[in-house]
């Protein structure tokens, strides 16, 4: 399946839940509503022509207006690649855990909670692990984060 065929197939099969986005430059990129996330993930994994069984990467994005969570998945058996993202509001960002589908998401989701302050429902182990245990300065990966000893690189023209 080429990338165009994959995009067409996914749009046809899951068109009501996965909305294609124009900003993807290499692999097909879709948007998923936060409520549909786990269902879509399960369907992508179980579809016999897709079999997305391998979670490559999962990362949060802060665009200053909203949060995005990007899921990069791959299929080892069918040799495919696909990205999809969930868009969340800045206030009360919450998302469901996809550990049921891809158990490897566990640490990536802990990172979301720790560095971005995005609450992950049904995670089961949202504890600090990258930052020091006594950390109390908020969520450092947010764009508006600041601290007294945080030095920004001066602009040089």
């Amino acid at each position: 399946m080429t990338k165009q065929e994959l995009a067409a197939y996914v749009t046809e099969k899951f068109g009501d839940k996965l909305r294609p986005l124009e900003s993807g430059r290499y692999d097909p990129l879709f948007e998923v509503q936060a409520g549909d996330l786990v269902d879509v993930a399960q369907a992508l994994k179980e579809d016999e022509n897709l079999r997305f069984d391998f979670l490559c990467n999962l990362g949060g994005v802060d665009t200053k207006e909203r949060f995005e969570i990007v899921y990069n998945v791959a299929s080892i058996t069918k040799n495919l690649r696909l990205d999809f993202k969930v868009i969340l509001p800045y206030e009360q960002a919450e998302v469901d855990s996809v550990q049921k589908v891809w158990p490897g998401a566990n640490w990536y989701e802990r990172e979301l909670w720790e560095l971005y302050g995005i609450h992950v429902r049904n995670h089961g182990n949202l504890t600090r692990f990258l930052l020091p245990d006594e950390w109390d300065q908020g969520y450092p990966m947010r764009k508006n984060w600041d601290a007294p000893d945080f030095v920004r690189l001066p602009e040089i023209d």
């Binding site: 900003s23 993807g24 430059r25 290499y26 692999d27 490559c56 990007v70 990069n72 990205d83």
Partner: peptide
């Protein structure tokens, strides 16, 4: 503007 995921085969697995 745009977004892309690049991945290569590194010594320790997928580097993306």
């Amino acid at each position: 503007a745009g977004e892309v995921y690049a991945r290569i085969e590194n010594t320790r697995g997928e580097l993306g």
